[in-house]
Nucleic acid binder design. Structure first.
Lengths: 212, 212
DNA sequence: GTGCGATGTATCGGTCCGATACATCGCGGC
DNA sequence: GCCGCGATGTATCGGACCGATACATCGCAC
């Protein structure tokens, strides 16, 4: 998952670790707290070893007279390679069971602007199916096993059930919107395309609520 | 977290691994998918080594003529020890940062019936604070960085923000309810008390919705 | 001039997951 | 009669990710 997210972000522009983490937090803030460095740096290393990303020296100053001693670690800027872009395209289009869990879905969704419409639809529907199953499980417990559970546990289930119902409705909307064709041909072509132009994808939600 | 959950469940009655997993799923279904055996069994081993739980032979049949060969593995029933109950009481009352993340809060909440009121209040308020922070983060992104993000990412944030607002409201209700004193003295006394009597704790939610 | 918070890179131990393996039991179909 | 198959049941292994920790630099307020 982290791999996919990093590749996706670096596709927008080269970055160093710290920056990457901030962007990751901004983009995925709705899904997960904040990515740990204990995951980030090892993953960067792995991606570099695989050839999906490369280091790029960043010093804007010519850096002629570096003191040599104390060796000035300096920040390491990473950029995605052509193979990395291929890898990203492959990862973003391929769906497995993990695509539909909370984190997996969140990451995929966050990069829907770079995903083709058929895949978007497939993911949305898979997620809906999964949430519906969770919902049924909660209904079962709330129905059949209610007397075995204490009031707090029950309340927790109710809250969870509510969240499920709400998410299913949200997904229905997105699916309908997606099916209605309102979806441009997305910049998956990105390999040589316009740099950082943000060719805006479809408007997913129709301002479902007043926000003053 | 798993440790706390296992100790909590075994406090209700002795169980073997498989059963434990099912009960765990029923009790925490609103929080997390299903606990993996790859976590469960090692944790059971750890708890046993620490002396919090013990194995209890379960065969109801006298098992006199066991074939000896092929050695009939048989299910392993675990039960909590006195030290285990102490450990549980300690874990359930102590709060750290991890108490307020999604999983930690869920597990603690699921055992609120065995938690004293002051602790319940503390946890509820800590969780609210945490969710409020997440909410502010999302509002910031939605406000300040909106044009840097594509429509799908934005929609994800909106959905996340909505969930935050909803959870804060839920927590407010629970906190108010808790403060209103409607909270019996909870069976944390359990060490020698009535066996599996489920002395019902307070009604947390006031049937916030019709459920036909 | 000095402390302190933001920026920045990095590692380590531990928790938990997902895949996999394997054995038993009861039941329905052939 | 027996065969497969799904539920029950215990167990391990590699890998992903987290939280704590360490350490260095920079700019700015006091």
């Amino acid at each position: 998952m982290l791999e996919l997210a990093i590749l996706g972000l670096l596709q927008e522009s080269p970055m160093h670790g710290y920056e990457l983490r901030k962007e990751l937090t901004a983009k995925l803030g709705a899904i997960r707290a904040a990515i740990s460095y204990g995951s980030l740096y090892p993953t960067l290393r792995r991606l570099q070893a695989a050839g999906w990303i490369t280091e790029a020296a960043d010093p804007p100053a010519t850096a002629e007279e570096v003191p040599a001693l104390t060796s000035r670690r300096g920040r390491v800027v990473y950029e995605i390679t052509a193979e990395g872009k291929e890898r990203f395209a492959q990862l973003i289009a391929q769906t497995g069971p993990e695509t539909y869990d909370d984190t997996g879905f969140g990451v995929h969704f966050a990069f829907f602007a770079r995903t083709d419409q058929a895949t978007r639809l497939r993911i949305l529907e898979g997620r809906r199916r999964k949430i519906e199953e969770r919902r049924e499980g909660l209904r079962d417990v709330l129905g059949r096993a209610a007397e075995r559970l204490d009031a707090y546990t029950l309340e927790l289930q109710r809250h969870g059930l509510d969240a499920c119902e709400r998410e299913v409705r949200w997904l229905e909307e997105l699916i309908a919107n997606e099916r209605s064709g309102r979806a441009p041909a997305v910049p998956t072509t990105g390999t040589a395309g316009g740099r950082r132009e943000d060719n805006s994808p479809p408007p997913p939600g129709e301002s479902r609520k007043e926000r003053p």
